[in-house]
Nucleic acid binder design. Sequence first.
DNA 1: AATGTGACTACCC
DNA 2: AGGGTAGCCACAT
Length: 107
Amino acid sequence: MGKEPDINHRIWQVVALIPAGRVATYGDVAHMADLPGAARRVGAALRVLPSGSKVPWHRVINAQGRLSLPEGSDGYYTQRERLEAEGVLFSVKNTINLRQFRLSRGR
DNA sequence: AATGTGACTACCC
DNA sequence: AGGGTAGCCACAT
């Protein structure tokens, strides 16, 4: 079984490892899922996540510390509310301080 | 096989 | 600082 039957599943599994109150970038998740450079693929996997799933997709943000969902969309506010409920702070410019909340890689 | 897409990134002005 | 651009990767047509 050298071939992965379901990349999405592997990505979701990695996302499930992000603890509450912390975030990871799409690039981080791609790297952790053994798909270095495939950050966009991570977004695609989250996009098709079944609603009602327990996977904490809201903890995945972009490398600029911003939410990638269109500002003003339902998804944007859902993500933001969930993060704030977990204690993740947003600056007045709607950015998250990665130094403080990003899950460190490696170590 | 070729082309188009995107919840991304790193660079370059 | 902020917007434009060109890579990038796996998928869908």
